[in-house]
């Protein structure tokens, strides 16, 4: 474990972290998918979970969100268990996880993010409609509110999911592969949306498949391969040794160079 304390100045250490994981273990059948994972995402950080295929990245966030059960471990969101802080967490699942032929339009799906406020019977007011419109505006889908979701491109579907998280007005945003198989325009839009959230004091945690671009977007990182190899500020975590330990022989020299280069690019202006 190479946890370091050299966080950027805007991160406050005196308050509870947005997410703290202690000794999380999840198993399917007899084998651990995650083993004794520790992690901390400070408030206002933009964190990324990276690791090879089968490292348990999606399982980790599903365990954090109570979608898959855990064998052991403790999870605190802003110092409290999930059940007490549900309204402060927004989840963006993988786009491929649902049937897009479902009878709903874009605005219907985004309005699902309001469920915790609306409950069973509270009225869906003009104010709610306005918030849905605004969320769509932020991801650049304002013209698509009434479109059937099956007619959207992959990138647009991803934006709908992000808009559904935005409308919730949460403090911690957890995204599962938000940039997977989307067009370059969507990746730019979404990265800008997430960066703006962080500027407004929100916390973002993503699973990200592309190791070489992780350093472009994120301030904090966790290297995961069933066990947590390292976590903390990204420039401290992305050391050649730790990356090699995470990916084994799968990491090419070119990839390492590219990461070193983009980390150097981050360091120079500041």
């Amino acid at each position: 474990m190479t946890h370091t304390d050299s966080a950027p100045p805007e991160i406050r250490q005196d308050i509870d972290p947005a997410l703290r994981i202690d000794g999380l273990t999840v198993s399917y059948g007899g084998a651990s998918v995650l083993f004794s994972v520790d992690f901390e995402a400070p408030v206002g950080s933009m964190s990324v979970i990276v690791g090879p295929n089968g490292a348990g990245k999606s399982t980790l966030i599903k365990a954090v969100l109570g979608i898959v059960p855990r064998i052991s471990g403790d999870i605190k969101l802003f110092g409290l268990p999930l059940s007490a802080n549900r309204h402060r967490v927004a989840y963006v699942p993988q786009r491929a996880s649902i049937d897009w032929d479902f009878p709903a339009c874009v605005a219907d799906v985004v309005a699902m993010g309001l469920y915790q406020e609306l409950g069973l019977l509270r009225r869906y007011t003009a104010d709610h409609r306005e918030r849905v419109r605004e969320a769509l505006d932020r991801v650049g889908l304002q013209d698509f509110a009434q479109r059937q979701i099956g007619q959207l491109s992959g990138g647009q579907q991803q934006r709908v999911f992000v808009a559904r998280a935005l409308v919730q007005n949460a403090d911690l945003y957890i995204l599962d592969e938000p940039f997977a198989a989307v067009d370059a325009a969507t990746e730019r839009t979404l990265a800008a949306v997430l960066q703006r959230l962080v500027l407004n004091g929100k916390t973002v945690l993503c699973v990200h498949h592309e190791l070489s671009t992780a350093a472009d977007y994120f301030s904090h990182a966790m290297l995961l391969n069933v066990r947590c190899i390292a976590y903390g500020a990204i420039q401290d975590v992305f050391t050649p040794e730790a990356l090699q330990e995470t990916y084994g022989a799968r990491l090419s020299v070119e990839q390492l160079d590219r990461i070193r280069h983009s980390l150097a690019g981050r360091a120079s202006p500041s």
């Binding site: 969100l65 109570g66 979608i67 989840y91 699902m112």
Partner: peptide, 15 residues
């Protein structure tokens, strides 16, 4: 509606 569309998301919403 939530459970039909996306059960995992519904669970995160506390359902």
């Amino acid at each position: 509606n939530l459970v039909c569309f996306d059960p995992d998301y519904a669970r995160v919403q506390g359902l």
